[in-house]
Protein backbone atom coordinates (compact mmCIF):
# COMPACT_ATOMS: atom_id res chain seq x y z
CA UNK A 1 0.00 0.00 0.00
CA UNK A 2 1.64 3.27 -1.10
CA UNK A 3 1.80 6.45 0.97
CA UNK A 4 -0.27 8.25 -1.67
CA UNK A 5 -3.00 5.63 -1.43
CA UNK A 6 -3.08 5.84 2.37
CA UNK A 7 -3.21 9.62 2.11
CA UNK A 8 -6.16 9.38 -0.24
CA UNK A 9 -7.96 7.06 2.13
CA UNK A 10 -7.31 9.42 5.06
CA UNK A 11 -8.59 12.38 3.03
CA UNK A 12 -11.67 10.40 2.01
CA UNK A 13 -12.40 9.35 5.58
CA UNK A 14 -11.89 12.94 6.71
CA UNK A 15 -14.29 14.15 4.04
CA UNK A 16 -16.88 11.59 5.03
CA UNK A 17 -16.52 12.50 8.68
CA UNK A 18 -16.90 16.20 7.97
CA UNK A 19 -19.86 15.48 5.73
CA UNK A 20 -21.55 13.39 8.36
CA UNK A 21 -20.91 16.07 10.99
CA UNK A 22 -22.33 18.72 8.69
CA UNK A 23 -25.34 16.57 8.10
CA UNK A 24 -25.63 15.78 11.73
CA UNK A 25 -25.62 19.25 13.22
CA UNK A 26 -28.18 21.87 12.41
CA UNK A 27 -30.53 21.31 9.53
CA UNK A 28 -30.80 25.02 8.93
CA UNK A 29 -27.06 25.55 8.61
CA UNK A 30 -26.91 22.82 6.01
CA UNK A 31 -29.85 24.23 4.12
CA UNK A 32 -28.24 27.68 4.10
CA UNK A 33 -25.04 26.20 2.72
CA UNK A 34 -26.96 24.33 0.04
CA UNK A 35 -28.85 27.47 -0.92
CA UNK A 36 -25.60 29.43 -1.12
CA UNK A 37 -24.25 26.90 -3.60
CA UNK A 38 -27.44 27.25 -5.65
CA UNK A 39 -27.07 31.03 -5.61
CA UNK A 40 -23.49 30.79 -6.83
CA UNK A 41 -24.82 28.92 -9.87
CA UNK A 42 -27.75 31.30 -10.48
CA UNK A 43 -26.68 34.63 -9.00
CA UNK A 44 -29.57 36.59 -10.52
CA UNK A 45 -32.37 34.34 -9.34
CA UNK A 46 -34.52 36.43 -7.01
CA UNK A 47 -36.25 33.41 -5.53
CA UNK A 48 -33.06 31.83 -4.29
CA UNK A 49 -32.18 34.94 -2.31
CA UNK A 50 -35.68 34.99 -0.87
CA UNK A 51 -35.42 31.35 0.12
CA UNK A 52 -32.01 31.80 1.73
CA UNK A 53 -33.26 34.91 3.49
CA UNK A 54 -36.07 32.93 5.05
CA UNK A 55 -33.59 30.30 6.20
CA UNK A 56 -31.42 33.02 7.74
CA UNK A 57 -34.48 34.38 9.48
CA UNK A 58 -35.27 30.97 10.97
CA UNK A 59 -31.64 30.71 12.02
CA UNK A 60 -32.05 34.04 13.84
CA UNK A 61 -29.50 35.73 11.54
CA UNK A 62 -31.77 38.68 10.93
CA UNK A 63 -29.31 41.03 9.25
CA UNK A 64 -28.32 38.39 6.72
CA UNK A 65 -32.00 37.69 6.14
CA UNK A 66 -32.73 41.36 5.45
CA UNK A 67 -29.77 41.56 3.07
CA UNK A 68 -31.04 38.58 1.10
CA UNK A 69 -34.60 39.88 1.02
CA UNK A 70 -33.39 43.22 -0.28
CA UNK A 71 -31.30 41.46 -2.92
CA UNK A 72 -34.34 39.42 -3.95
CA UNK A 73 -36.36 42.61 -4.27
CA UNK A 74 -33.68 44.30 -6.32
CA UNK A 75 -33.85 41.34 -8.71
CA UNK A 76 -37.56 41.84 -9.25
CA UNK A 77 -39.32 40.03 -6.44
CA UNK A 78 -42.21 42.21 -5.32
CA UNK A 79 -44.34 39.43 -3.90
CA UNK A 80 -46.56 39.74 -0.86
CA UNK A 81 -44.64 36.97 0.82
CA UNK A 82 -41.33 38.78 0.44
CA UNK A 83 -42.72 41.88 2.09
CA UNK A 84 -44.32 39.78 4.81
CA UNK A 85 -41.03 38.05 5.59
CA UNK A 86 -39.18 41.37 5.59
CA UNK A 87 -41.74 42.79 8.02
CA UNK A 88 -41.53 39.67 10.16
CA UNK A 89 -37.74 39.89 10.29
CA UNK A 90 -37.74 43.58 11.23
CA UNK A 91 -40.34 42.79 13.87
CA UNK A 92 -38.15 40.09 15.33
CA UNK A 93 -35.26 42.58 15.27
CA UNK A 94 -37.43 45.07 17.16
CA UNK A 95 -37.19 47.55 14.26
CA UNK A 96 -40.88 48.29 14.31
CA UNK A 97 -41.01 51.29 11.97
CA UNK A 98 -39.28 49.33 9.23
CA UNK A 99 -41.52 46.39 9.98
CA UNK A 100 -44.60 48.56 9.57
CA UNK A 101 -43.37 49.89 6.26
CA UNK A 102 -42.89 46.38 4.88
CA UNK A 103 -46.12 44.94 6.18
CA UNK A 104 -47.97 47.87 4.66
CA UNK A 105 -46.49 46.87 1.30
CA UNK A 106 -47.65 43.31 1.85
CA UNK A 107 -51.18 44.41 2.71
CA UNK A 108 -51.27 46.69 -0.33
CA UNK A 109 -50.88 43.57 -2.46
CA UNK A 110 -53.45 41.55 -0.52
CA UNK A 111 -55.74 43.66 1.65
CA UNK A 112 -57.57 40.70 3.14
CA UNK A 113 -54.64 38.58 4.27
CA UNK A 114 -55.25 37.87 7.96
CA UNK A 115 -51.68 36.72 8.51
CA UNK A 116 -50.32 40.09 7.36
CA UNK A 117 -52.98 41.99 9.25
CA UNK A 118 -52.16 40.12 12.42
CA UNK A 119 -48.50 41.00 12.08
CA UNK A 120 -49.46 44.60 11.39
CA UNK A 121 -51.52 44.64 14.58
CA UNK A 122 -48.57 43.23 16.53
CA UNK A 123 -46.27 45.87 15.08
CA UNK A 124 -48.71 48.68 15.80
CA UNK A 125 -49.03 47.39 19.33
CA UNK A 126 -45.28 47.63 19.81
CA UNK A 127 -45.43 51.15 18.43
CA UNK A 128 -48.14 51.92 20.99
CA UNK A 129 -50.58 52.89 18.23
CA UNK A 130 -53.34 51.13 20.04
CA UNK A 131 -56.46 52.24 18.22
CA UNK A 132 -55.06 51.15 14.87
CA UNK A 133 -53.94 47.94 16.57
CA UNK A 134 -57.47 47.32 17.70
CA UNK A 135 -58.92 47.82 14.25
CA UNK A 136 -56.43 45.45 12.67
CA UNK A 137 -56.77 42.79 15.35
CA UNK A 138 -60.55 42.92 15.36
CA UNK A 139 -60.49 42.08 11.68
CA UNK A 140 -58.08 39.19 12.37
CA UNK A 141 -60.22 37.74 15.14
CA UNK A 142 -63.38 38.01 13.09
CA UNK A 143 -61.93 36.56 9.90
CA UNK A 144 -59.37 33.94 10.89
CA UNK A 145 -60.81 30.47 10.43
CA UNK A 146 -58.41 28.63 12.74
CA UNK A 147 -58.05 31.20 15.48
CA UNK A 148 -55.82 30.10 18.37
CA UNK A 149 -56.12 30.67 22.12
CA UNK A 150 -52.96 32.77 21.95
CA UNK A 151 -54.57 35.11 19.41
CA UNK A 152 -57.57 35.73 21.61
CA UNK A 153 -55.44 36.35 24.69
CA UNK A 154 -53.27 38.76 22.73
CA UNK A 155 -56.42 40.48 21.58
CA UNK A 156 -57.59 40.89 25.16
CA UNK A 157 -54.16 42.26 26.11
CA UNK A 158 -54.52 44.87 23.40
CA UNK A 159 -57.88 45.91 24.81
CA UNK A 160 -56.20 46.51 28.16
CA UNK A 161 -53.25 48.27 26.59
CA UNK A 162 -55.64 50.82 25.14
CA UNK A 163 -57.49 51.23 28.41
CA UNK A 164 -55.90 49.54 31.39
CA UNK A 165 -59.22 49.46 33.23
CA UNK A 166 -61.34 48.08 30.42
CA UNK A 167 -61.66 44.62 31.87
CA UNK A 168 -65.14 44.26 30.51
CA UNK A 169 -63.70 44.75 27.04
CA UNK A 170 -61.00 42.21 27.77
CA UNK A 171 -63.62 39.79 29.07
CA UNK A 172 -65.65 40.28 25.92
CA UNK A 173 -62.58 39.28 23.94
CA UNK A 174 -62.26 36.14 26.06
CA UNK A 175 -65.94 35.37 25.51
CA UNK A 176 -65.32 35.52 21.75
CA UNK A 177 -62.62 32.92 22.29
CA UNK A 178 -64.87 30.71 24.34
CA UNK A 179 -67.52 30.94 21.68
CA UNK A 180 -65.13 30.20 18.83
CA UNK A 181 -62.93 27.55 20.42
CA UNK A 182 -65.17 25.89 22.98
CA UNK A 183 -66.67 26.83 26.31
CA UNK A 184 -64.24 24.65 28.25
CA UNK A 185 -60.99 25.93 26.76
CA UNK A 186 -58.98 26.01 29.93
CA UNK A 187 -56.63 28.88 29.10
CA UNK A 188 -59.60 31.17 28.53
CA UNK A 189 -61.16 30.10 31.79
CA UNK A 190 -57.94 31.01 33.59
CA UNK A 191 -57.68 34.34 31.81
CA UNK A 192 -61.29 35.06 32.61
CA UNK A 193 -60.62 34.54 36.31
CA UNK A 194 -57.64 36.85 36.11
CA UNK A 195 -59.68 39.67 34.56
CA UNK A 196 -62.63 39.14 36.88
CA UNK A 197 -60.31 39.39 39.86
CA UNK A 198 -58.67 42.53 38.59
CA UNK A 199 -62.05 44.12 38.06
CA UNK A 200 -63.24 43.08 41.55
CA UNK A 201 -66.15 41.00 40.28
CA UNK A 202 -66.06 38.74 43.30
CA UNK A 203 -69.22 36.75 42.69
CA UNK A 204 -68.22 36.12 39.10
CA UNK A 205 -64.78 34.91 40.19
CA UNK A 206 -66.38 32.46 42.61
CA UNK A 207 -68.78 31.29 39.92
CA UNK A 208 -65.89 30.77 37.57
CA UNK A 209 -64.03 28.64 40.10
CA UNK A 210 -67.22 26.71 40.74
CA UNK A 211 -67.57 26.01 37.05
CA UNK A 212 -64.03 24.61 36.91
CA UNK A 213 -64.74 22.52 40.02
CA UNK A 214 -67.88 21.08 38.49
CA UNK A 215 -66.33 20.40 35.08
CA UNK A 216 -63.26 18.48 36.21
CA UNK A 217 -62.91 15.00 37.63
CA UNK A 218 -60.11 16.21 39.80
CA UNK A 219 -60.74 19.51 41.50
CA UNK A 220 -58.36 19.74 44.45
CA UNK A 221 -56.28 22.42 42.78
CA UNK A 222 -59.35 24.51 41.93
CA UNK A 223 -60.65 24.28 45.50
CA UNK A 224 -57.29 25.54 46.69
CA UNK A 225 -57.28 28.46 44.25
CA UNK A 226 -60.82 29.29 45.22
CA UNK A 227 -59.98 29.18 48.95
CA UNK A 228 -56.94 31.38 48.42
CA UNK A 229 -59.04 33.94 46.58
CA UNK A 230 -61.80 33.90 49.16
CA UNK A 231 -59.25 34.75 51.85
CA UNK A 232 -58.01 37.62 49.70
CA UNK A 233 -61.53 39.02 49.59
CA UNK A 234 -62.02 38.31 53.31
CA UNK A 235 -64.73 35.68 52.93
CA UNK A 236 -63.22 33.50 55.57
CA UNK A 237 -66.03 31.05 56.18
CA UNK A 238 -66.39 30.26 52.49
CA UNK A 239 -62.63 30.03 52.25
CA UNK A 240 -62.55 27.46 54.99
CA UNK A 241 -65.20 25.38 53.22
CA UNK A 242 -63.13 25.46 50.03
CA UNK A 243 -59.98 24.45 51.90
CA UNK A 244 -61.77 21.55 53.57
CA UNK A 245 -63.19 20.45 50.23
CA UNK A 246 -59.69 20.54 48.75
CA UNK A 247 -58.42 18.33 51.53
CA UNK A 248 -61.26 15.86 51.11
CA UNK A 249 -60.71 15.85 47.33
CA UNK A 250 -57.12 14.85 47.95
CA UNK A 251 -58.25 12.08 50.27
CA UNK A 252 -60.38 10.68 47.47
CA UNK A 253 -57.48 10.54 45.01
CA UNK A 254 -55.77 7.29 44.21
CA UNK A 255 -52.78 6.91 46.44
CA UNK A 256 -50.37 7.29 43.56
CA UNK A 257 -51.70 10.78 42.85
CA UNK A 258 -51.56 11.66 46.51
CA UNK A 259 -47.91 10.70 46.41
CA UNK A 260 -46.92 13.01 43.57
CA UNK A 261 -44.79 16.01 44.33
CA UNK A 262 -47.51 18.33 43.05
CA UNK A 263 -50.04 17.01 45.57
CA UNK A 264 -47.52 17.07 48.40
CA UNK A 265 -46.83 20.71 47.59
CA UNK A 266 -50.55 21.38 47.47
CA UNK A 267 -51.06 19.83 50.89
CA UNK A 268 -48.39 22.10 52.32
CA UNK A 269 -50.02 25.09 50.68
CA UNK A 270 -53.43 24.10 52.02
CA UNK A 271 -52.08 23.76 55.54
CA UNK A 272 -50.47 27.18 55.31
CA UNK A 273 -53.67 28.63 53.97
CA UNK A 274 -55.69 27.10 56.76
CA UNK A 275 -53.20 28.38 59.29
CA UNK A 276 -53.50 31.89 57.87
CA UNK A 277 -57.26 31.56 58.18
CA UNK A 278 -57.00 30.78 61.87
CA UNK A 279 -55.21 34.08 62.43
CA UNK A 280 -58.08 36.03 60.87
Amino acid sequence: MTFKFIKKIVVLIGFLLISSMLFAHGDLSIRIQEKTIEISKKPTDANLYYERGFLYQQHLEYQNAISDFNKSKSLGNYSKLLFFRMAETYYKKNDYEYALDKITSSITIDAGDVKSLKLKAQILFKLKRYKETMLAYTYVVENTIDIRPEDIIEYSNIVLAIDSLDYNGALEAIEIGLEKLGANTVTFQLKKIEYLKKSDQVEEVVNQYNMLIKNNNRNEFWYYEKGKYLIEVKRYHQANIAIQQAKLAIELLKTKFKSTLAIKKLQTQLNELEKSLNYE
Binding site: L181, G182, T185, T187
Partner: peptide
Amino acid sequence: TAECGGTSSGT
Protein backbone atom coordinates in the same frame (compact mmCIF):
# COMPACT_ATOMS: atom_id res chain seq x y z
CA THR B 1 -62.29 20.45 22.91
CA ALA B 2 -61.33 17.30 24.80
CA GLU B 3 -63.29 15.12 22.37
CA CYS B 4 -60.98 12.23 23.19
CA GLY B 5 -60.54 12.93 26.89
CA GLY B 6 -58.20 15.29 28.66
CA THR B 7 -58.66 19.04 28.86
CA SER B 8 -59.74 21.43 26.11
CA SER B 9 -56.74 23.18 24.60
CA GLY B 10 -58.61 25.11 21.92
CA THR B 11 -55.89 24.29 19.43
